[in-house]
Design a binder for these strands. Structure first.
Lengths: 207, 207
DNA sequence: CTCTCACAGTGGTCAGACCAGTTTATTTTT
DNA sequence: AAAAATAAACTGGTCTGACCACTGTGAGAG
């Protein structure tokens, strides 16, 4: 009890030090991290502890290791994370419905965000693009979620998409008319009551 | 090229075997897993590889280890995951805005879901409850997200809430009038065009 | 019966060894 | 001199054995 806090495990500390190291050196996806042996020496810990930290980060999809080459920053796309979330957290059948619902609502939110954030000209071009694009394709919604400029939504959506595709469900078919109608409705309601209140609330949370 | 696929790392295989072991034995949160040494022997791999797998699962918040006692299943609430997401993925300042935005939109989505899913009587009671409750409290929104009956949204929201609270930001203050107005607007628009299209699209994704 | 304490079991960590790949430098061959 | 083959120096992947710190338990002392 009296002892300070020897609780923190070494590998957790390594994860933190790696984080600050990445931040300090400004490492981008694709950049190489120091070797395991060098990290072990620089941080004054055993190599196995370094490996435990690296393996954990790898499973999270944050880094990538190639034997003989080294350890590299990864373009976070939650690869392993997908299967883990899908097998551990989303194991019950009921949650498949939640995935559908959540994925769709996020797409709707992103559509909303695009329309809110875009100016008149961008809005027109976007409207035109939606008419030409193939919205039954994953890439269409990927573009939608990307344009929303919310990295968090993007990450979550990608995970949901991968999980959704890993199931052998039929695609959610949407007619072009329906989707166009939805977009037009959202655009026309850009200044409706819901949006107005939403905007006011948003303004309160400016940084 | 011709070689089958010796790529799979040992610790990844251990993660998978652990998963099937958990599923097969029906291990629930709180249950104890075999010891590292026993797993090492049973799976015919080194203890260090077992540890790499366990550490990764621990960082994901799926298991919990207590020195001298053993390794236990955990009630997944993404504890470590929170800090990781917050420190790695959300490290740049810009993404703080994403967290705010995402959290708020999810709350909005859940509000939407509640109103859509509820019948007339439940809707009235819900409306009454929102007038009495303290909506600046986390518990209020927790109730909202819970009532939406979407476990995935609930999980994500909890993570965002924890992260949001870990930052030392001022709370997003919403006046009672604003929030009431928002709810009333959503309720009154229950059959508006957006909702109608949304419903049609949702119906297409029934199981 | 109760208390104490040694012991077995468990996770935490480290060091060293070896294997399997990749990269780089060196040597050999053309 | 240029190109090809070889060797050396790394890098990650894995295993083993050892030791520490901690927990639970059971045997023996009181």
């Amino acid at each position: 009890m009296n002892s300070p806090q020897n609780n923190t495990k070494v590998y957790i500390g390594i994860v933190k030090q790696l984080r600050s190291m990445i931040e300090h050196d400004g490492l981008k996806p694709g950049d190489r991290l120091p070797s395991e042996r060098e990290l072990s020496e620089r941080l004054g810990v055993g190599r196995s502890s370094v490996r435990e930290a690296l393996r954990a980060l790898e499973l999270l999809g944050l880094i990538e290791t190639r034997r003989g080459e080294g350890t590299f920053m990864r373009d976070f796309r939650g690869h392993q994370l997908v299967q883990l979330l899908s097998t551990f957290i989303l194991q019950d059948k009921k949650s498949i419905r939640d995935v559908k619902e959540t994925k769709f609502l996020i797409e709707l939110d992103c559509l909303w965000l695009i329309i809110q954030k875009a100016g008149e000209d961008r809005l027109l071009r976007f409207r035109k693009w939606t008419l030409e694009a193939d919205y039954t394709d994953d890439d269409f919604f990927l573009e939608i979620v990307t344009l929303a400029e919310n990295h968090l939504f993007l990450r979550i959506w990608i995970i949901l998409k991968d999980y959704y595709n890993s199931l052998d469900l039929e695609k959610m078919m949407i007619t072009k008319q329906q989707y166009a109608e939805l977009i037009d409705t959202l655009i026309s309601r850009k200044d409706s009551e819901v949006i107005r209140v939403y905007k006011e609330l948003r303004n309160l949370s400016k940084d």
